[in-house]
């Protein structure tokens, strides 16, 4: 069952231009210039209930714009959007009651209120049945280990703590769909792991549909089976991350530590990336020479101490992808 449907979505902004310097400031008093920014151009995709989708793209690509349109606070210039059968920006109140949104670094909780008071207020705002609210709240507090933080005003929390409270706040009203806009940004490593684990659980055990936008490729690696890449307002890829990787970089890396000095190697399909006295880092295309064959070719000829196969870092894959599509930061 399709839960989210996006068809030919487009969004164009008009932005005022301002020249720098004192002269420009004075000119700005008299005449304004406008230019058009195409934030989204013909984007189409759909999600089934219970899916987890990662939205990646360079800065300014249109990820946040898409999330804003899906959550109903921004009206597109053209195209069709349906979430759970509703058109988000036309049915705002009904729509937002069914979704949860977490913006990285921006908290929805009240700055001076203790966390628990903020939760209680949200329950009133979302009209959650009191018994149901208490159960859900206690469940989330346990899952996110918020017990010691409940009495503290939000402004006293660290970023990691705030994000955990944010997640709980976004889920108190049991939304079927969760939008996460760069939720791990600025978090320390343990907090990132905790957030990913939580989102995974939410999606796999409780069937919450999750759409996450992120820069952090490890978020993608940890969470998403399906990835959409957006660049300069256009949809560049939509599918499993593995096929994305394969389409861009069909490359593997082989790291070898030799017993003796590192030898010269001339094998078809293999490039030497780094050489030290006793080790080599090789890049090779498994389509040209299969991994076991390559290992055998080297090990039978030279004394090898250690071998390690790996793939290029995700960041490299993605950067290569952006480059291929001329989609670098706008």
């Amino acid at each position: 069952m399709l839960q989210i449907l996006v068809e030919a979505l487009a969004k164009t902004y008009r932005v005022a231009e301002r020249a720098p310097g004192l002269a420009g400031a004075v000119r700005g008093l008299v005449r304004r210039r406008w230019r058009e920014v195409h934030a989204l151009v013909d984007v189409s995709f759909s999600l089934e209930a219970g899916e987890l989708l990662a939205f990646i793209g360079p800065n300014g690509a249109g990820k946040s714009t898409t999330v804003k349109i899906l959550s109903g606070i921004l009206r597109p210039t053209s195209g069709r959007v349906e979430v759970g059968g509703l058109v988000p920006y036309e049915d705002r109140v009904r729509h937002v009651a069914r979704i949860g949104v977490v913006f990285g670094q921006r908290s929805q909780l009240w700055w001076d209120l203790p966390v628990l008071d903020g939760f209680d207020l949200l329950a009133d705002i979302y009209r959650v049945d009191p018994a149901h609210y208490r159960r859900r709240r206690d469940e989330l507090v346990a899952m996110l280990r918020l017990e010691p933080l409940l009495g503290q005003p939000v402004r006293q929390l660290s970023l990691g703590q705030r994000m955990r409270a944010e997640f709980a706040a976004a889920l108190l009203h049991d939304p079927a769909i969760l939008f996460l806009d760069e939720p791990t940004i600025g978090l320390d490593a343990p907090s990132k792991l905790a957030v990913r684990a939580f989102v995974r659980r939410l999606n796999r055990e409780q069937g919450v549909t999750v759409l996450i936008t992120t820069h952090d490729m490890h978020d993608v690696e940890a969470l998403a089976e399906r990835v959409i890449v957006i660049g300069q307002g256009r949809l560049l890829a939509d599918g499993p991350f593995e096929s994305l990787r394969a389409s861009v970089l069909a490359e593997r890396r082989l790291y070898i530590d030799f017993a003796g000095p590192a030898p010269e190697l001339e094998i078809r399909g293999v490039t030497v990336r780094t050489r030290t006295e006793r080790s080599l880092e090789l890049a090779f295309d498994p389509a040209v020479i299969a991994t076991p064959k390559l290992i055998a070719a080297i090990a039978t000829q030279h004394a090898v101490e250690d071998i390690h196969v790996d793939e290029p870092a995700i960041e490299e894959v993605i950067t290569r992808f952006y480059d291929l599509h001329d989609a670098r930061e706008a």
Partner: peptide
């Protein structure tokens, strides 16, 4: 500040 976005994300006037 963009805080109005959050106001619109709540199911209230």
């Amino acid at each position: 500040t963009g805080a109005f976005d959050r106001v619109l994300l709540r199911p209230r006037a």
